[in-house]
């Protein structure tokens, strides 16, 4: 492994695990959505960490003769950039659904909401 920091992947995969476990084991709808945002952050971190190469610079030219072979991979960064913004939209939509569910059932507990039990 020529990578400088395996700690990065530990962090990203750990965050994915915490998010998944929150989604699977919690019973409060807002807490489940918190787990989804943690999962989102972890996946984004993993994607950017895959594109990172040790001792290279950001893919932005600062002078006309900068060397492009000394830059990290720009493709995962472009993917993650839009994924973050869409993550906010999805979170807001899920929260609007949670508010409506609370208005109907007066609770956010999935055990008491018919149709959300498992």
């Amino acid at each position: 492994m020529t990578t400088g920091n395996p700690m990065m992947y530990v962090g990203a995969v750990g965050l994915i695990m915490i998010g998944l476990f929150t989604v699977l084991s919690k019973r409060n709808l807002i807490k489940i959505i918190v787990g989804l945002t943690l999962l989102d952050t972890g996946v984004n971190l993993l994607l950017v960490a895959i594109g990172y190469i040790h001792n290279r610079t950001a893919p932005i030219l600062t002078q006309a003769h900068a060397d492009p072979s000394k830059m990290v991979d720009p493709v995962p960064q472009a993917l993650v950039l839009t994924a973050i913004v869409i993550g906010l939209g999805v979170t807001a939509l899920a929260l609007a659904l949670a508010i409506r569910v609370y208005g109907h059932y007066k609770t956010l507990d999935t055990r008491k909401i018919r149709g959300l039990k498992w």
Partner: peptide, 11 residues
Amino acid sequence: LLQAPDVAMAE
């Protein structure tokens, strides 16, 4: 720190 300033601003 992972050399992705664009993503850092958005996050």
